[in-house]
Design a protein around this nucleic acid. Sequence first.
DNA 1: TCTACGTTTCCAATATTATAGAAATGTTAA
DNA 2: TTAACATTTCTATAATATTGGAAACGTAGA
Lengths: 106, 106
Amino acid sequence: MMKIGSAVEALAALAQETRLSIFRLLVQAGQQGIAAGVLGEKLGIPPATLSFHLKTLAHAGLVKSRTEGRFVIYSADFSAMDKLIAYLTEHCCAGDASRCAPVKKC
Amino acid sequence: MMKIGSAVEALAALAQETRLSIFRLLVQAGQQGIAAGVLGEKLGIPPATLSFHLKTLAHAGLVKSRTEGRFVIYSADFSAMDKLIAYLTEHCCAGDASRCAPVKKC
DNA sequence: TCTACGTTTCCAATATTATAGAAATGTTAA
DNA sequence: TTAACATTTCTATAATATTGGAAACGTAGA
């Protein structure tokens, strides 16, 4: 079971326009991921700022990185995303099962 | 379709331990909701602080309130929660359908 | 080895957010 | 109407986050 501290950290990481944009690009890219430089170019943010935000997302457990040559490839951690969503909706709608339809993830 | 600004606002509202606790209590309470005073008592936070956080959650669209006598009853806005989750997971796992199993909401 | 390039760290200025006491507001019951 | 109670607004202080330039680091190809 997720601890509240981890959930707050993950939510805080996502609660910032630049980081949310990064994360959504990575979610859409899937396991393949996107290189840091490509992200910076797509979003038009300077290297230092990008690095800061990626570090924040990685520390929150929402993204992983791997090195390929001199590129660092980032990708979303889908299991972390699922756990966060589960934490938010845990035991929801008690006594009102009609509101509890499954939500398709994508 | 959700705008990024609304998503950031909702995530920021949830990215705070006190507010996340409030929201989860309200999610579990369902449509019935919980009075402001009861929330304050359950969580041990002073009235001014509670009011500040409830206002933040309400402004982000995550909670609704209704007045009953001299009590103000708060409840989670489940449709806002669903939209936020959909925004996060939108177009996820492109080209890797195996990771896209439906997630049950509760 | 040397050079080029992608990425990260360091740092300082600026902006935003959390907290809670005290006072104000609004509602109910007597 | 008056007194009691629930909740919100006002206000100031303290803590935390964002930004990007400059410099450092590490990898790859010549």
